[in-house]
Simulated assay, not measured.
Amino acid sequence: MGRFGVRVNAILPGFIETPMTDKVPDHLIQMTKMLIPLSRLGRPEEIANACLFLASDHSSYVTGTTLEVAGGLFP
């Protein structure tokens, strides 16, 4: 779709602090954090910032890619 000026990208979020993860037992959250190189869950605004980047002119030459926002969990 690039030749038509359409860029297609995807964001792959990791474990993000949301009402859904609030219901996960604390011991499982702690185990998950140990697997994440940044040692924490992501924040919703970090996903939003990735979306803003891909929607902005700063990413005008980015297409056909996936952007992992997962704190390094999925190398």
Rank of each mutant, 00 (worst) to 15 (best):
F74S: 06
S59Y: 08
H58V: 00
V62N: 12
L73G: 03
L38P: 01
P75L: 00
F53C: 14
G64M: 13
K33W: 01
V69L: 06
I36P: 09
A70M: 03
T21S: 10
L67H: 11
V8L: 12
R3F: 13
I47L: 13
F4K: 14
D57F: 00
S59G: 09
L73M: 07
H58Q: 11
M31G: 03
L67F: 15
L28S: 09
V8Q: 10
L41V: 07
A48K: 12
L35R: 10
D26I: 10
C51N: 06
V69P: 05
E46N: 10
F53N: 13
A50H: 09
I11H: 04
S56E: 03
N49L: 09
V6P: 07
G14T: 12
L28Y: 06
I36F: 13
S39I: 04
I36Y: 11
M20K: 01
P25K: 04
A55T: 15
V69W: 05
T63D: 03
T65S: 14
A50Y: 11
R7A: 05
T65W: 04
P25R: 02
L73A: 09
L52Y: 13
I16Y: 04
D57V: 06
V62P: 13
F15C: 00
C51D: 03
R43K: 15
H58R: 06
F4G: 10
G2E: 03
S59F: 05
K23G: 15
H58A: 11
D26M: 09
